[in-house]
Structure formats: structure tokens, C-alpha cells
Design a protein around this nucleic acid. Structure first.
Lengths: 138, 138
DNA sequence: CTGAATCCCTGCCGATACTG
DNA sequence: CAGTATCGGCAGGGATTCAG
């Protein structure tokens, strides 16, 4: 996405901050691409609690089909978020863990969470009913 | 998405942190929904530099079609990110600005940017070539 | 000037069935 | 056990055209 936030120092004049169309090389796009797809963030959440095997994930997320779970794991592995390790022995098991890079998604998800829990301040036009608060989850 | 990051205090046992399927009421989903869609983050970037009119945005992002720009503005307005104000006079112009809520997307985009610029550390299995660094933007 | 309506096309998601 | 192959449905995105 090629942004730079308000007055924030640190990314003063990155050339990417001026692109005029979506490009996969933009850092914001890279991150959004890593998080892209339904279920992806829920899968990552599971890993923030520790390593998991395919079956453990399937039990943790029963509504997620094998195919999509497989897709997500492959995608996250390719993105450098997960580390895939075949355990020797029988039955064959594959153990996934967050890479150090993947672990640093924690603050990113925290930022997403924080914004999502924020009340919509009634500063838009009138007084928006505060029914969209953070209290009613699921 | 119903996460809670690693050991981070602040969201200790939010009920949403345990959902087993994607739900629109999860804070992470709310934020990702606000950012959802191609061009969306680029549009937000424009607003981090100040208010804009439809035409100004069209000039800033020439490759963005009118329809999609219109869609994005409507979507961001509905999400409480933008404030839409019809300017009286002729020709009719509409001025958009970030709401306070929308302005707080700055840190979120910063977090996304930061993760995207991070080097993939060669700690995954072997030595991954650092060809995916943050240096080559657009 | 600022969109809304329409059409087509592509890519994602889910379900099912099959393999090392 | 841990995936891959295939298919269908549906929503997103782009181009074009029309309206307030």
C-alpha cells in the first residue's frame, strides 16, 4: 500500500509511499497478502498459542474444511509465517510452528484488534447508536 | 478474528478470542473488512495527507476506475472511516475527510507496513536468500 | 461533477472424492 | 494422516453507460 502514516517519523519518504496503483511489492500489500483469505487470521491465532499439527487444527476449527486448511497452511508457509516439519514415525504427522517472522504478526493482529474494538465516536454526522461496541462478540 | 496476541496483556480472555469460525463481529474481522478490497489502502493513504474530493482522488490514482473509487468511498464512509460532505455551490463537489476513527487507522497501516518491510530472517530452516527485503519498492 | 446500473470475467471458497 | 484433484457457486473488480 505504500503509505506513510500521519506525521510519524520513520518512513519519511519511502518511494513506495507514492505508488499510484496496487503493487505486490508494497509492504502493506505484502502483509495483507499474508493475512489474505478467510480463516487465515483464525489459523494464525491458533499458532500464537503454540505449535499445531494438521489434526489439532482440524479439531480446533471444525468448520474449516481440509482443503482450505491445507491451502492456508501452504500459503502461510510460503509467506514465511509458518515452519513446516515432518515428524518421522507413524502415523505421518506434520508439525507447524510460527517462524520468528510469523511471531511478529502478533503486534499486527493486536493493532487490527484494537481498531476493531474501538467505539465509533459519534462525530460522523449525528449520534450513531453505540450498538457496535466491543462488548458483543460472536 | 478473535485473537489475542502472545503474552500481551490487555485482552486477556475476551470471549471473541475463542470463536471457531470467522464472524463479522470479531474486532480483527471488522478492521480487515474496513480495509477490504483492492485500492482501499491506497485511498486511505491519500486521506492521511488530508481531505480530498472525488476529482482529486481520481487524479491521484489515475488507474482507479470511477466505479471502484465510488465503491471504496461509499464503503469507507459506511465503515466510519470517512466523512462525506457535499459542498454547496457549483459545480457540485463532494469533500471527504477522515473521521477521528479513520485517522486512527494510521497506526494500523504503520503496523502492516512495518511487518511488510521486515526481512525474512534466515531462521526458518536454512538460509533463505534475503531477496525479499524492503529495499525494492515498486 | 459525482456517482449508480449493468454486464462480463476472474478467483476464492466449499464440498466431495481420491492418493502417498 | 495429510494432503491433492476436481467441480460448482458466488462475490469482487473492471469497463462502459446512464442519471441527479
Amino acid at each position: 500500500m505504500t503509505h506513510q502514516t500521519v506525521g510519524q517519523p520513520g518512513l519519511p519518504d519511502d518511494p513506495c509511499a507514492n505508488v499510484v496503483e496496487p503493487t505486490p511489492s508494497c509492504p502493506v500489500e505484502i502483509t495483507l497478502a499474508a493475512l489474505h483469505g478467510r480463516w487465515t487470521t483464525l489459523v494464525i491465532r491458533e499458532f500464537l498459542h503454540g505449535g499445531r499439527t494438521f489434526t489439532e487444527l482440524r479439531r480446533a476449527l471444525p468448520a474449516l474444511s481440509d482443503k482450505v486448511l491445507s491451502d492456508r497452511l501452504a500459503h502461510l508457509t510460503a509467506a514465511g509465517v509458518l515452519d513446516r516439519r515432518r515428524e518421522s514415525g507413524w502415523p505421518p504427522r506434520v508439525h507447524y510452528t510460527l517462524t520468528p517472522h510469523g511471531r511478529r504478526l502478533g503486534p499486527v493482529l493486536q493493532a487490527l484488534w484494537d481498531w476493531g474494538t474501538e467505539q465509533l465516536p459519534s462525530t460522523e454526522t449525528e449520534g450513531a447508536p453505540p450498538t457496535r461496541g466491543a462488548s458483543s462478540v460472536i
